[in-house]
Amino acid sequence: MSILTLSGNGRPHKRPLWLYYDAIWGYVFIVPFLLVAAVFLIFPIAYSFYLSFRETWLYSNWFDQFADMRYVGFRNYVDLLRNPQFWWALVATFVYALLVIPTSIAASLALALFLNTRLPGYRALRSAFFLPHVFDVFVVGIIWLLLYNPQIGPFAEFFRWLGVEWFKKHGFVDNPYTILPSIAFAMVLKGMGFGMILFLTALNNIPDSIFEAAEIDGANARQKLFYVTIPLLRPMILFMSVTGLVGVLNAFAEFYAMTKATGGVAFQFLGATVQAARVSGFYLYQLFSDAFYGHAAAMSFILLLIGLVITWVNFRILGKEA
């Protein structure tokens, strides 16, 4: 390699000097990021881990809230695992993830395929579909609540026009059956433009020769889609399902907005009363805002564990060839 000459004197190294040089520059380039990450991400995680074994109590002085937290051992974790509301939060998150992640991947892909042609105005359409992604989730959620209103919202009126009176009577976010799908629907519509851009980028990177080869082999359009395009897009699908999972585990503002901060309509689960849209992110927020910092930290670590397991499974299934 001509680059070896950079090592200067040409002496044979077990490990060429330029590699050290390269490594030093590597560290130089990551230092700013790593510094910020260490202070504002890694330290907080370690600190939260410490907090997850402590808890505030009624008499915690606000001026010294953290020093005033008491050691409780594993009680925060045990409390959570024994609470049916926590289990419902997990189930609701899981259901929501199943509703939102595959749908948004499919919708994004479909949109990308539609707009991957020289359809007149394709550029404007791409931008138009992308635009809602950048809006504040909370604000969009509030508007959707207005749209889902059973009395004055256009959707209930639309379904009545179709002859379905059910929504007029039971609402969209007012019954435990349709609340999660309704929120998921709103969020898929909002986010599919972003996925579309990602898929367009990925499509862009697929060499044309592959499709030419497929055509020569006599593949029709459907075969090309399922046997060529989608397998080649697998890394992007993996990426989107992992980031989708991250998004779902963090999802909070949409639930806060679309349930008027209540957590949604109540129903019975494992003998306890739970609220249909109190997903893990919402649950966590409530713990946080009620100053149960220890419980909140413990819950985060349980969620992290679950997230890691799902991601690992994801990689096993989707990442085989990636």
Binding site: G26, I45, V246, S280, S300, L304
Partner: peptide
Amino acid sequence: KKRFPGRDLLFAGLITIMLVPGIIFMVPQ
């Protein structure tokens, strides 16, 4: 593009942080 000891481990570690629910950073930050 750079090769340095601990690179891949560090990167994997950082990616894992993405899975930590965001709200938990608030108090320590």
